[in-house]
Amino acid sequence: MITITGLTRSFGTKQVLRGVDLHVPKGQSMVVIGGSGTGKSVLIKCILGLVTPDGGTITVDGQDVTRVPRDAFLARFGMLFQGGALFDSLPVWQNVAFRLLRGSLRRPRPEARAIAIEKLRRVGLGPETADLYPAELSGGMQKRVGLARAIAAEPQIIFFDEPTTGLDPIMAGVINDLIREIVTEMGATAITITHDMSSVRAIADRVAMLHNGKIRWTGPASQLDSCGDPYVAQFIHGSPDGPIETLR
């Protein structure tokens, strides 16, 4: 399980996280919603150590993330980045098998390639894509490759940063379904950052809303529509009128 307590982080004079408290039970799919620039991505980057928090604690299975060996810690994680973040200079299969070709999880090259092709198949891509380069793929295919890379080493915890951004509604639906299936099938703990409500409904077991640097509301996905919080209500209905300030 992941437990975040009193997490704070500022960039210059702008305080992005103002004391985030969040608990993600093991094997659950938590979706964090919130407007653009509310610090959702910063939150998961803090958990991964990509951004150093100013204050607060983050524990994974009771262990403080700042006091565990980095390699072993990161080996438990997979992440799908917003833009895919595929390595341009490597063919698709080497992107997927990146972790299996080097470091502590290293496997023989033919075995790593076979695993990569299997993971590509799992996300709906044929073996013919294995030797293509990321620049040769469409946006949807890049997301799928990113997803395959995130699950290649069978991680226990997977993060998805805006998994459907930039995709058409049909492809977004396909990616949402894939994420839900994979998380269920692997029994992984997942945190998804999104402001796409179709993703929330397809992926979430639990939902947390981040607003003004704090968790405004958290609860089961089934209670999202009836939670009674005016901020959540405004967000999920996409209404310009309500307590959340909008620029017009």
Binding site: K45, L74, A75, F77, M79, G83, A85, L86, D88, R99
Partner: peptide, 17 residues
């Protein structure tokens, strides 16, 4: 620099590299 702005550097870190 391109790798940095497209989060490829962050991806390297998450892949234990």
């Amino acid at each position: 620099a391109t790798m940095k702005v497209t989060e490829q550097i962050d991806a390297l870190v998450t892949l234990s590299t």
